[in-house]
Nucleic acid binder design. Structure first.
Lengths: 219, 219
DNA sequence: ACCTGAACACCGTTCAAGT
DNA sequence: ACCTGAACACCGTTCAAGT
């Protein structure tokens, strides 16, 4: 139902909130500029004063969700694998509450997050022992997986919970995947195996596959 | 340019071909029922005699691309990890030739493949030693990753090749990821018999969370 | 059986105009 | 500065009708 006539100015914040509400309730397919306007009690073009276009609105929505999932940062006293899994799981939980959004997120450059958040994520992997290029690849790997999972689960999450095909629910799939992601990355640091091995945390010069141009910028 | 007046009947095959051509050339956003009709020299509604709706057409398109990537099957004399990586890479290469399709594929149930192909994939993992439930999880994990990668690369592939951010190209990301996927899955099979317990190599055993109801149906 | 033609109910977005 | 109102150029899809 449209709200009654507004007495105060619209805000960008308000528009983003309304967009989030619509997606949460009816899915991303129901997010139209006209629906946002109706929900806020204004005419279709009113929101255009605050956002450039629909893509801009979705970008703001994406960043909002990323923000609500905290940041990826090393924590003393905890294994980095656990910190990573917890963070990715939080992102998955927050994102899957917005049916269909995953399919949009994954098409965005930087997966709908700010460059700043991205750099923090890469930093995380550098801090746990990955050389700069590998840290970038590792971050991308982890993010690609979880966004893939979010997209796959995007429309399942819409339905009444627990589809449980073959006795397995969405939570089982994502937790299994996160364990594999962590294991796959850990095996790179285990200084032993693998052909293109990356030497681990115990110093040791790393022989990298010829990747040029990257510069490590560390605080 | 619209073809001149048709003298023979339309076919479903022809419609799918035209859809593929449009996506390859102009991206999935340019795929409209009207564009397909124009390309085939018919009126907008003609295709509806052969496909139910746009979603149905996209499903056919998706299956077509999956088919062109071969099937996942164990090969004697080759490591299963290599077979897996090769198959996923083929899927990635075929899919990224269709700009924007990834974002659609990943939203489809079964990721745009037939149930038959899915069962074959799960069988692959059973054949290399995963118990039924884990085989399903493993297949889903691998497919989720590669479709995530396809989606992320979907719009990059549109541009003239090799964006090479920070000295890394799309090929580097996907190959790195596939190595991690294989390593993550391999670590489950190490130090365990192919019968029961699936233990992670590092510290904690991956406790099989109460998953019930799965039945192994093997030919 | 196969396709056309006209229409409907939507979209995102432009533009000029109002206050 | 902030928003309205009308319009434009699209969509997917329906329906009845033609051959």
């Amino acid at each position: 139902m449209p709200k009654s006539r507004r007495s105060v100015s619209l805000t960008r914040e308000e528009i983003v909130e309304e967009a989030l509400r619509i997606i949460r309730t009816d899915g991303v397919a129901s997010l139209t500029m006209r629906a946002v306007a109706t929900g806020l009690g204004v005419t279709p073009m009113a929101a255009y004063y605050y956002v450039k276009d629909k893509d801009d609105l979705l970008r703001l929505v994406s960043e909002r969700i990323a923000e609500s999932s905290g940041v990826l940062r090393v924590q003393s006293g905890r294994e980095w694998q656990d910190v990573l899994k917890e963070h990715l799981l939080a992102l998955w939980e927050n994102s899957t509450r917005y049916p269909g959004l995953g399919g949009y997120l994954i098409n965005q450059r930087n997966l709908g997050m700010t460059g700043e958040r991205m750099e923090m994520g890469i930093r995380f992997f550098e801090d746990v022992g990955f050389p700069p290029h590998e840290a970038r690849l590792a971050w991308s790997f982890a993010m690609t997986y979880i966004h893939g999972r979010i997209s796959v689960d995007a429309h399942l999450a819409h339905k009444t919970d627990a589809p449980r095909l073959h006795g397995l629910g969405a939570g089982d799939y994502v937790r299994f995947g996160l364990d594999r992601v962590a294991a796959g990355l850990t095996s790179m640091l285990d200084s032993s195996d693998e052909r293109s091995a990356v030497a681990g945390r115990g110093s040791r010069p790393t022989t990298l596959r010829a990747v040029k141009g990257g510069r490590a910028k560390r605080g």
